[in-house]
Design a protein around this nucleic acid. Sequence first.
DNA 1: AATGCAATTTAATCTAAATCAAAATTCTGA
DNA 2: TCAGAATTTTGATTTAGATTAAATTGCATT
Lengths: 264, 264
Amino acid sequence: MSPRDMSSNSPTVNDNKITMKPQTVVRKICPHNANVSCSSCRLNELCLPIALNKSEIHLLDEIVERNRPYKKGDHLYRQNDDFKSVYAVRSGSFKSYVLSNNGQGRVTGFFLPGEIIGMDGIASKHYANSTQALEHSSICEIPFSQLEKLSQQLPSLQHHFFAIMGNEIAKDQQIHTLLSSYTAEERTASFLLGLSSRFAHVALSPIRYLLPMTRSDIGEYLGLTVETVSRILTALQRKGLIEVNNREIELLDIEALRQVIGSK
Amino acid sequence: MSPRDMSSNSPTVNDNKITMKPQTVVRKICPHNANVSCSSCRLNELCLPIALNKSEIHLLDEIVERNRPYKKGDHLYRQNDDFKSVYAVRSGSFKSYVLSNNGQGRVTGFFLPGEIIGMDGIASKHYANSTQALEHSSICEIPFSQLEKLSQQLPSLQHHFFAIMGNEIAKDQQIHTLLSSYTAEERTASFLLGLSSRFAHVALSPIRYLLPMTRSDIGEYLGLTVETVSRILTALQRKGLIEVNNREIELLDIEALRQVIGSK
DNA sequence: AATGCAATTTAATCTAAATCAAAATTCTGA
DNA sequence: TCAGAATTTTGATTTAGATTAAATTGCATT
């Protein structure tokens, strides 16, 4: 399996805005522009470069590979591929999922700009998940062996990567608790609030955002069926806590949403 | 909150074998003997020292603190305590859990000899869980700041600790899948098989072992009630897949147990 | 050995969410 | 612009596992 597979599970199309304009113009306006160094990247305060100084960022810059954008449905890697790199989302979003023997997929994570993908492969040297773009997206690839070498030179990079991995562990354990004891409504409210703060983290609106994933993706992630997710969203809307318009979500009463999961 | 709290949730007692014999004899026979260096520890092939050479292990030995044994119910640390160390189980077993607002506990993990506890605190600098001994147990404490310093000197230690954390991430994601799509019977079978291979890993029998935790702990961990856990164990026994006698488990038909979760 | 509490099992009932079925809506590409 | 596909919603029914209740077993302390 090639590390870069442009085929999609679902039929995809090119982004109209891009294919309709000449290349040079695209370069200028494309929000997924690959020619951005870590030092000038708007995410450098929350991605790997955090806690590095100018000259250290320059060293990091040299090992980061900025691939061309991924189309919706493109795979970053597939389950069982050789582990080579971790990835930082620059723009767009991704989902990780595993396929069970009976063909059913289960989503194990969603990734927004600034977040790191692929750490599940570090121990076994093979990715445990498949990971796929949910929309037109761009990525920084960080070859792990080089990240390790650089971490030997830069104590603050080592420290920060330990923290990134520790954060992933803490987050995964929160999800463990959520799945083992929350009701469908509590899970959904928690999910919406979680997305909200992640959007806020990348300077997007925490009260009004577009879901990059389907109801089915959400269901697989939260251990619910599509129908239940849909019903819960409708119910939360009827209660006046949120406004749903297809993929667009508006959080009308964040305090009440917190109350939903209040006792947990 | 002190880092070492000898009080228990449940009333506990001293281990008869120990309190009934004079100190000097205890030192000799106690399986939780604290005076074992990493180099002579029987777990050194699967704990932190793995992949280190003799002189490197000696450096590690110097930062490891070998505390006196923990009694059943003693806390290693509590939720929200300042993060200072990670811990390697030397003997016995531990559980991590979080308390919800309504007082309900949810178990987030079990730890057997050779396994590393406390990585959930690395990012936030506060432990996200409480962790408590399930039986008379002993621990090696590894102050994290010293582990970081040593990892700067020893590339293979850095590499190995990245792997340990990556392994934790991969395991947590498997549990995510388990909780979001497995039935009660599948979860229980998977749990029993998982314990089996972990016991095998420390050279204990993979087909006959004692559960260190209660049915309630198992239920909290698997997102099931005690009653369901009990019923499923009884059902698996009736089907001839296992033999249950209180805390003692014998796996009679491992292949059939694998079949239970076969399609997943 | 006796006592008392914690842990486990068993049984009856209930319920949240799954499943099944189908209609409505949105997206996609020709 | 439109047809077909995918996604989402809605409703009726079923069910796995929760809840409630009680009996039983195990184990620590007296």
